[in-house]
Nucleic acid binder design. Sequence first.
DNA 1: AAGACAATCAACCGCCAGTAT
DNA 2: TATACTGGCGGTTGATTGTCT
Length: 294
Amino acid sequence: MGRSPCCDKASVKRGPWSQEEDAILRSFVERFGNAGNWIALPHKAGLKRCGKSCRLRWLNYLRPELRHGGFTDEEDNLILSLYGEMGSKWSVIASKLPGRTDNDVKNYWNTKLKKRYLSTTREATPQPPPIGGGGDDSIAADDDSPSQGVSQGQPAPPALVNLDTTGLDNVEENDELLHKSDQLYAELMGLIGQQSATTTTTGEAASARAAATTTTSSWSWSSSGTSPTSSSDGSSMWPVDVHDAVPLSESSGGASSSNSTLFFDSPAFGGSFQDLLDSSSFDDVMLTQELLYY
DNA sequence: AAGACAATCAACCGCCAGTAT
DNA sequence: TATACTGGCGGTTGATTGTCT
């Protein structure tokens, strides 16, 4: 009977995300997209979270293009106008607002705009008092459906302007991380140089590594000649079979025939992202993720 | 200063549609 | 064609924070 749950609720962590979890998820998704599917992602990334929770966290909070902070008057007007046209189609409305999520818009509506919307609609189309209402002005009791009167009572929204992202709160933090990533990449090149002197690698793999370029917030993948494609949810999808990159504990334990699993299976870097976090500083994790890149 | 209340927003829930098998 | 699985969505909850008394 009923629908089976998407994950075992007894074994997954719930509630607010920690910075460490965010770091793991952000790094993983920036590298691999959703690695095949969101349900499997937490296991591959070493997160004790439901896949749907990971997806939501990424979409609503971690995506780099997101804008946090107050809504502008232009955005207010656009939301009001669109709600009047289509009702609570939050994903559609959010798609018209760069950097905003449906959850953001929905929350903003419920906490701020709903009152303004209702007062506007009442001005445009006076409502009879509620039966036995006694003057209760509860929002929750109000009709939440869009009113045709709004389009008439609400002025046409001005053109959406000045929505650039230069004012993002986390720009400095991002820049710092990007800089750190570049530094780590330089270190990595040195390590690979040392490693290549002591380990056997194919000429092709070595040249691919040498040709690989560092990436930070955006994808660049020169070694394979392909680039990730953008999915509808804004995450990048890995062009190769990285979703086969399973933690060592899940693999057969032997040498992998796939480059994408090579470093998961490596004795030096085996295990999940969480394992790495448990045993390393965050800088080390970032460095290791660069290794996963090749 | 402390408790009550309101506001905010991240996160969860459950349903639905599309896709794969 | 039927079934299972996954992503996406809207509604709702609950913890936290802010404001008022």
